[in-house]
Amino acid sequence: MKSDASRLGFYLLFAPILLWLVVLIILPHIGLFIVSISEKVGPRQYETGFGNYAAFFGEPLYWRTFARTAIMSIAATALTLVLGFPIAYYIAKLTRGRTKTTLFLMCMIPFWVSELVRTFGWMILLRETGVFSNALQSLGLVSGPVEMLYNDAAIMVGLVYTSILFMVVPLVTTLDSLDDSLIEAGYDLGGSSTSIMREIVIPHAMPGIVSGCIVVFMLSLGNYLTPILLGGKDSLWFTGMIYTQFITRFNWELGSAFGFLLLGLSSLVVFLGLKLSGQTLSQTMGRS
């Protein structure tokens, strides 16, 4: 039996979460969808229709940017996994005690620092008058200043840098839970390093790999700073287009449609990732 007081307590606890989710998450997204399916036919006159989505598919610049953003995010995710896995393995399996904590902390510190500062660092390193260009010149490898900023490779370096922690942390956690004796057993049974990696380590680390990939993909897809600052003016990134439609062009209807498409892609990837690995959202997010 529930007393009135505890019912009251329950509703008091229920009110804040309901307010938060309804007012700040659910209603705004419904609103965003409604705006995305309204077409401007005259000043302050709107009609319902999918014209904004048609505009997206009809204009190559829009959907190519969308595809480019998606492909580069996938590439960044793959690269982050390939680069991050050995590091996570090293931290989880080849270090002990204080070294382990120190290495782990050294991984974390850059990520407590604002993304803006990290990107600024890369700009100083890569630009024409930057550190790398000067280093190459003084080594005599190149004759004049080299511009390494404002291209896709620079964006890639920045994206990987920005998101690698979100790959390393879940990987370290899952690899930590892999018992060394399983690896030893693999060697005792005559397995080679590659086959042990393939048969024992990677299957065990799969949940961590999936969590890491999902988070890194989402972060890359939704990234704004890195592509804009490292990719320069001509670099196209879908979040940049959303910003342009909203703030510069003031075409909120098209901007909302873009926003919904990006949200759709990002949710689809999360959903597929979770389905393929048989995990739930709470497991995945709880880990990172």
Binding site: I17, L21, L24, I25, I26, L27, P28, H29, G31, L32, V35, M218, L221, G222, Y224, T239, I242, Y243, F246, W252, G255, S256, G259, L262, L263, S266, S267, V270, L281, S282, M285
Partner: peptide, 22 residues
């Protein structure tokens, strides 16, 4: 609980524009 986790998978830009529009 699922809804509570949603903000984690919504890109920040989208969160921003949806609140702006609303």
């Amino acid at each position: 609980y699922m809804l509570m986790l949603m903000p984690l998978i919504i890109p920040g830009v989208i969160l921003g524009i949806s609140i702006l529009v609303f």
